[in-house]
Design a protein around this nucleic acid. Sequence first.
DNA 1: GCTGTTTGCGAGATCGTTCTCGCAAACTTG
DNA 2: CAAGTTTGCGAGAACGATCTCGCAAACAGC
Lengths: 360, 360
Amino acid sequence: MVERRSHAPTIVDVADQAGVSRATASRALSGYGRTSAATVERVRRIADEIGYRPNELARAMRAGSTGTIGLVVIADFTNAFFDRATKSIVDAARKRGYQVLITNTDEDPDVERGAIETLLDKQVDGLIVFPSATGHSQHLEAGNLGGRPLVLADRRLDDLGVTMVSTDDYSGTREAVRNAVGLGHTRLGFLITAANITGHTMARPLALISSVRDRTDGYAAGAAEAGIPPEDQVWHFSEDVPESSEAAVAEMLDLASPPTVIFTSNNDMALSVLKVAGSRGLAIGREVSLVTVDDSPWAAYMVPGITVVARPVEQLGELAVERLVAEIESPGQAAQDIQLPTQFIPRASVADLRTPAPGQ
Amino acid sequence: MVERRSHAPTIVDVADQAGVSRATASRALSGYGRTSAATVERVRRIADEIGYRPNELARAMRAGSTGTIGLVVIADFTNAFFDRATKSIVDAARKRGYQVLITNTDEDPDVERGAIETLLDKQVDGLIVFPSATGHSQHLEAGNLGGRPLVLADRRLDDLGVTMVSTDDYSGTREAVRNAVGLGHTRLGFLITAANITGHTMARPLALISSVRDRTDGYAAGAAEAGIPPEDQVWHFSEDVPESSEAAVAEMLDLASPPTVIFTSNNDMALSVLKVAGSRGLAIGREVSLVTVDDSPWAAYMVPGITVVARPVEQLGELAVERLVAEIESPGQAAQDIQLPTQFIPRASVADLRTPAPGQ
DNA sequence: GCTGTTTGCGAGATCGTTCTCGCAAACTTG
DNA sequence: CAAGTTTGCGAGAACGATCTCGCAAACAGC
């Protein structure tokens, strides 16, 4: 039963066995020109019998499109962001008949540049890029993309004039601060991820990626609205490695009057708070309050549940694919800057410091 | 500066501008035949100037290999398994000069079959498959793979005679049971993921995927060694959805004499224990003990830390790529069945029920 | 100066498709 | 039955690269 030929059957094999030409075989299988019903039936039967499957490489060569999109992500476990985004993108692409070539950059701009070149060389029809936090973005300019469309996900790069899909972290973070202040917190800590930082620092780095900038601005707006003066806030910028963020948390907690609530810009930072607080026997939601960005099952089911700003990650991935495919299939669309709404989810990790109402 | 041509420059453009033939241009760029130094210099300069990049599709057509491997995974967030495995595979592949075409099956065997067909059609050089828990595996037989190598990851399928990379969940789970019994636990609960289950059941399903079977066998061996009789054990099989596993946990905890420790076969199940116990005000590590398979940052940093059987997921991914690439680049290697060691990590989620030693 | 070898390069095939053309046979129509 | 139209099919080009040949020119040796 198994074909003995060293190579997979091609359309030539089908044509030969059906006693017709390549052209007729192709017509019969694709059903486009004029072919007699008998020929169609015979060719299809033989194709079935010998297990012919068209070589998509050859098809792509002829058609000029591969049905493949390139995905350049930044893998990070604890945020479950890579996970959720990748899955939603892969699934959304498959539903639309596209396959996904995936590369991970780990925030390394050189890897990002190289990955994009490789993907373009492999003739992807378009790209979804989670741009790395560091480095220039020349390699993302239209002229360097061979006319193939690009959608930026998660992080905005304003000068590229390209479609971007991100989340409204500003509003979510602002609401989170409002909520904590409403519960009586007056000394706030803020732990922020930033690249190009060695160790951690309280000085604001020159450039922040858009998502972190939004969170920072949202936090600042919330604090300002609530009337929390700068001297009652501690900001720490840290690179996204445990040693650095843990040191930042430790330093915060060592202050003469430490913050009663710590906001973290992602789950890596939040886990560092969990770890350092845990090692000191400080209970989250009692001695130390915690709010972070990005929801996850463990944040929801831990005791206490972690108060979070939830981002619609699946929707982000899905929309990135939808916009990219739209641009691939009908070029010349106007670039869009889409910001999806976030959701503030209060749980028990922020203590209620207000004086209990009389009668309670 | 930017080329105005509608299409990307090809080797014909390079050849024309250099005043040589395609053949000479190709030789100059790839450096294989005889070409004068002057010609090489001129061709390379022109290729640089016009931004020529070889079309990998055309190259692949001629060469018969694409430098691409297909990855078929099962996305699941809470286990961080998809995450870690995917990242390690993508990174390991890139290091060896391969790109990864990724598909997610969500355990759907039809999707798996279709995905593999599509990947083969796209002429991947080989496949890494995390086989779905259900359905047959005919589509994975050598005859249906067009001679392209396959490595099975995470789950073993014994009748395929193909290289498999998995983890030794048997030993890890057995040690976990030993440990809990050593701490004085005598009534054990076991919550197990299984496909083809509607809701949950205490009856053992007909077929279990190898990883879950290993965990089940390891658990059983540990319990037998420790002399825990069947009547002091509660087994619940559940499909991997929250409603089902939560109901199973609730039922366990509602027993007249509930288990003092619950073993779960993955993190989804563990989170259900966390959720249900939390909603009843039962503290993990005190009123209810918990052990699960797969480590993660949250499991480590939660209070109490969760006792786990840690699996070397990155190593698994890396090894799968290594074996696959070896088979691609020098076919005819003997199939291997590799089981990587797991590590039991005791933390605070298992209560010490032993009578304190006198003097303590 | 004649034969023999090296050097540099181009013509053309090849990978597996799709699709445009043109041609002959089979029909239709008056 | 001649003229026009439809039908079915094959030859060959194209996508963009690589690589095998073979052919000239340049060089070597005697």
